[in-house]
């Protein structure tokens, strides 16, 4: 399978790899996917008092397209409000990375990841 240059770039030089303190109140963690399906994504966002995502980290178990999708996502969400971040669509990711049809599920997973991370952050604020 031929990968686009953008997928290769993110795969070889992934951005924002790492972990934030998942216990911290201003960190939201989204973990989606399943080992049985061959991909698991963990996306974490750190939100400041103005509701802006000031940092994002990821780790992904999955194919090159899954790694690239999550790496790209961390770049995109930084500096955005929670509301803006939730507007990121899987189609935007698939288009930016020129994912072939069999890899579109990787971008869907990335969209699920940001929603899950925002949801986790929001539920922490409610407590």
């Amino acid at each position: 399978m031929a990968y686009s240059d953008k997928v290769l770039d993110h795969y070889e030089n992934p951005r924002n790899v790492g972990m934030l303190d998942k216990e911290s109140k201003n960190v939201g963690t989204g973990m989606v996917g399943a080992p049985a399906c061959g991909d698991v994504m963990r996306l974490q966002i750190q939100v400041n008092e103005n509701g802006i995502i000031e940092d994002a980290k990821f780790k992904t178990y999955g194919c090159g397209s899954a790694i690239a999708s999550s790496s790209l996502l961390t770049e995109w969400v930084k500096g955005k409000t929670l509301e803006e971040a939730q507007k990121i669509k899987n189609t935007d990711i698939a288009e930016e990375l020129a994912l072939p049809p069999v890899k579109v599920h990787c971008s869907v997973l990335a969209e699920d990841a940001i929603r899950a991370a925002v949801e986790d952050f929001t539920s922490k604020q409610g407590k």
Partner: peptide, 20 residues
């Protein structure tokens, strides 16, 4: 890069996790 490796290192049993 693998969250599963982190979990393994933290001693999490992956079979006990409720995966989506």
């Amino acid at each position: 890069l693998s969250p599963l490796w982190d979990m393994f290192k933290e001693g999490v049993d992956l079979k006990s996790v409720q995966w989506a």
